[in-house]
Deep mutational scan, measured.
Amino acid sequence: MDPFLVLLHSVSSSLSSSELTELKFLCLGRVGKRKLERVQSGLDLFSMLLEQNDLEPGHTELLRELLASLRRHDLLRRVDDFEAGA
Protein backbone atom coordinates (compact mmCIF):
# COMPACT_ATOMS: atom_id res chain seq x y z
CA MET A 1 0.00 0.00 0.00
CA ASP A 2 1.12 3.56 -0.68
CA PRO A 3 3.04 4.86 2.40
CA PHE A 4 1.39 8.29 2.08
CA LEU A 5 -2.08 6.74 2.21
CA VAL A 6 -0.99 4.72 5.25
CA LEU A 7 0.08 7.99 6.90
CA LEU A 8 -3.24 9.67 6.10
CA HIS A 9 -5.17 6.67 7.43
CA SER A 10 -3.11 6.74 10.63
CA VAL A 11 -3.72 10.46 11.10
CA SER A 12 -7.42 10.07 10.34
CA SER A 13 -7.91 7.29 12.87
CA SER A 14 -6.29 9.45 15.56
CA LEU A 15 -8.68 12.38 15.14
CA SER A 16 -11.59 12.98 17.48
CA SER A 17 -14.97 14.02 16.10
CA SER A 18 -14.43 17.58 17.37
CA GLU A 19 -11.04 17.71 15.65
CA LEU A 20 -12.64 16.52 12.41
CA THR A 21 -15.26 19.26 12.73
CA GLU A 22 -12.47 21.81 13.19
CA LEU A 23 -10.59 20.48 10.15
CA LYS A 24 -13.73 20.73 8.05
CA PHE A 25 -14.14 24.35 9.12
CA LEU A 26 -10.50 25.09 8.29
CA CYS A 27 -10.98 23.62 4.81
CA LEU A 28 -14.09 25.64 3.94
CA GLY A 29 -12.15 27.82 1.51
CA ARG A 30 -10.67 24.80 -0.28
CA VAL A 31 -13.57 22.36 -0.35
CA GLY A 32 -17.18 23.27 -1.09
CA LYS A 33 -19.66 23.32 1.77
CA ARG A 34 -21.82 20.58 0.23
CA LYS A 35 -18.83 18.28 -0.15
CA LEU A 36 -17.76 18.98 3.43
CA GLU A 37 -21.23 18.05 4.67
CA ARG A 38 -20.63 14.53 3.31
CA VAL A 39 -17.31 14.13 5.15
CA GLN A 40 -17.62 11.48 7.86
CA SER A 41 -13.93 10.92 8.63
CA GLY A 42 -10.53 12.46 8.27
CA LEU A 43 -9.89 10.03 5.44
CA ASP A 44 -12.93 11.39 3.57
CA LEU A 45 -11.53 14.90 3.90
CA PHE A 46 -8.01 13.85 2.94
CA SER A 47 -9.40 12.04 -0.11
CA MET A 48 -11.06 15.24 -1.29
CA LEU A 49 -7.85 17.19 -0.75
CA LEU A 50 -5.93 14.52 -2.68
CA GLU A 51 -8.37 14.75 -5.59
CA GLN A 52 -7.80 18.51 -5.71
CA ASN A 53 -4.02 18.03 -5.49
CA ASP A 54 -3.92 19.99 -2.23
CA LEU A 55 -2.25 16.96 -0.62
CA GLU A 56 0.51 14.88 -2.17
CA PRO A 57 3.41 12.85 -0.78
CA GLY A 58 5.84 15.67 -1.55
CA HIS A 59 3.36 18.41 -0.68
CA THR A 60 2.47 18.07 3.01
CA GLU A 61 2.36 21.76 3.93
CA LEU A 62 -1.44 21.86 4.15
CA LEU A 63 -1.52 18.71 6.28
CA ARG A 64 1.08 20.26 8.57
CA GLU A 65 -0.90 23.51 8.84
CA LEU A 66 -4.08 21.64 9.69
CA LEU A 67 -2.43 19.47 12.33
CA ALA A 68 -0.64 22.48 13.82
CA SER A 69 -4.00 24.28 14.08
CA LEU A 70 -5.25 21.32 16.11
CA ARG A 71 -2.07 21.41 18.22
CA ARG A 72 -1.54 17.73 17.40
CA HIS A 73 2.24 17.65 17.60
CA ASP A 74 2.14 13.87 17.91
CA LEU A 75 0.60 13.68 14.44
CA LEU A 76 3.05 16.24 13.08
CA ARG A 77 5.84 13.88 14.22
CA ARG A 78 4.24 11.13 12.11
CA VAL A 79 4.45 13.43 9.09
CA ASP A 80 8.10 14.13 9.96
CA ASP A 81 8.79 10.40 10.18
CA PHE A 82 7.08 9.84 6.82
CA GLU A 83 9.15 12.54 5.16
CA ALA A 84 12.38 11.28 6.71
CA GLY A 85 11.68 7.83 5.30
CA ALA A 86 10.25 8.96 1.97
Rank of each mutant, 00 (worst) to 15 (best):
D2A: 05
D2V: 06
D2I: 03
D2R: 05
P3H: 13
P3N: 13
F4R: 02
F4K: 03
F4P: 02
L5R: 10
L5Y: 15
V6L: 14
V6I: 12
L7T: 03
L8A: 01
H9M: 09
H9I: 07
S10K: 10
V11W: 01
V11D: 01
V11C: 06
L15R: 01
L15A: 02
S16C: 06
S18I: 10
E19K: 00
L20T: 06
T21Q: 13
T21V: 10
L23I: 07
L23Q: 01
L23Y: 00
F25A: 14
F25N: 15
F25R: 15
F25D: 15
F25E: 14
F25P: 05
L26G: 05
C27M: 11
L28N: 15
L28Y: 11
G29V: 06
V31M: 09
V31E: 03
K33A: 12
K33R: 12
R34L: 13
R34K: 14
K35V: 04
L36K: 01
R38W: 06
V39I: 11
S41N: 11
S41D: 09
G42V: 06
G42Y: 03
G42Q: 03
L43D: 12
D44Q: 10
L45M: 06
F46H: 00
F46Q: 02
S47T: 15
S47Q: 15
M48V: 12
L50A: 15
L50R: 13
Q52L: 10
Q52W: 04
N53F: 07
N53S: 10
D54R: 08
L55A: 06
L55G: 07
E56Y: 12
E56D: 13
E56T: 15
E56S: 15
P57M: 08
G58Q: 14
G58T: 13
G58D: 14
E61V: 11
E61K: 12
E61C: 11
L62A: 06
R64K: 14
E65W: 12
E65M: 12
L67N: 01
L67D: 03
L67H: 03
A68W: 15
R71P: 11
R71S: 11
R72G: 00
L75T: 02
R77V: 07
R77C: 08
R77M: 07
R78G: 05
D80Y: 07
E83I: 08
A84L: 10
A84Q: 14
G85H: 12
A86K: 08
